[in-house]
Write a protein that binds this DNA or RNA. Sequence first.
DNA 1: TTCATACGGGGCCAATGAAG
DNA 2: CTTCATTGGCCCCGTATGAA
Length: 373
Amino acid sequence: MGEVMEDNQNGPKPVGHALLSALDRLSASREAYVKRVEASALPGETFEQTEMRLRREQDQRDRARAAMPNGSIKPGSPSMIRKPPKGDEQPDFFVPGLYDMGSRDNRSVMDVAVFRLSKREKRAGEVIRYDLPDGYVEVKAGPDGMASVWDYDIVLMMVSHLTEAMNRYKEAKGEKPGRTFRPHVSDILKFARRGDGSRQIEEVEAALDRLKGTTIKTVREKMGPGGRKQRMVEAEGLISSYRVLSRTDTNRVSSVEIEAPKWIYQEIVEGKQPDVLTVHPDYFLIEPGIGRFVYRLARRAAGKGEAKWSFRTIYERSGSTGQFKDFSRHLRKIIASNDLPEYDLREERGQSGPLLIMTYRNGAAPLESGQGG
DNA sequence: TTCATACGGGGCCAATGAAG
DNA sequence: CTTCATTGGCCCCGTATGAA
């Protein structure tokens, strides 16, 4: 399981593959929780689907409450949340659960951005380097440029697919998943809660190119036996390979075949305790790239508690190419709107620059019910 | 006073995504 | 295809601070 990151003074460990953290799973409330979730299950719904639906509903209630006059949303702050596209409001469409990678070999890839936050600027050969206490991570763009947070949606889909398949497998309800995964393009767009215009379908292929080309290289130095320093270097892409099947008459991409990179596959399928985190479905509706990064950070660092990171550190870990002050400005806009799913954001003055406090909204957990408001 | 520097807000723009 | 709104990044300027 994850090691404690030094920036994260009071953050809990990464949460397990289900909604509940390892602590929750051990606690006595687990049974009551399972009962309550099952009680509100709709016909034909899996346990995970019910969990996600309850979470989403609770979050909507929270947001409504926060929007009240004495709530935390300042009037006039623009929302950071995109409106869902048409057709999306069908209940739960088909996304049973949304998962993201928590860590790789105890080294968090979630704390740094393995992609560009910006939609443009996809220069080839670009490198972002993150220096970490015990080594560094380098993200290198391939010939088609670096993958963006939006391209990463496809990776999220792959991770979610593998996790769901593994959950079924563990309950002896399905096959062990293989490394390749064959979604229809419209499934990808629907999963990412986007519209399905023709241009967006074309974009999927370009996104796959960037994902394939973008490699992550981690270099870790640690003390080996005998006090000798060991250096470990690994490099792999965000996806291993892909194939696009298109209809030649219309030149339209119809379905794609994506092979998961080893590090993701091994972590989820062969790991004993896969370190994946559930992600709120409204993640896809967070428009600013910085907002998405902050949500991922909060999800990973704060978990169900609170985390405190300096603006400067977040800026460095985000790989943003802009100036620090611009990053701060965008970050403050996100804080002002305070409409990220599940987390409340707050700014605090620190000794060396501003700090961001990310707090889990207690009411958002389906564990708590009926109290307050 | 003047000059230099740092910081943050406001305005702007090419690129993007959504919708028609 | 077209049109429109929004984005992150870039540039400029006002303010604060301090030394000479």
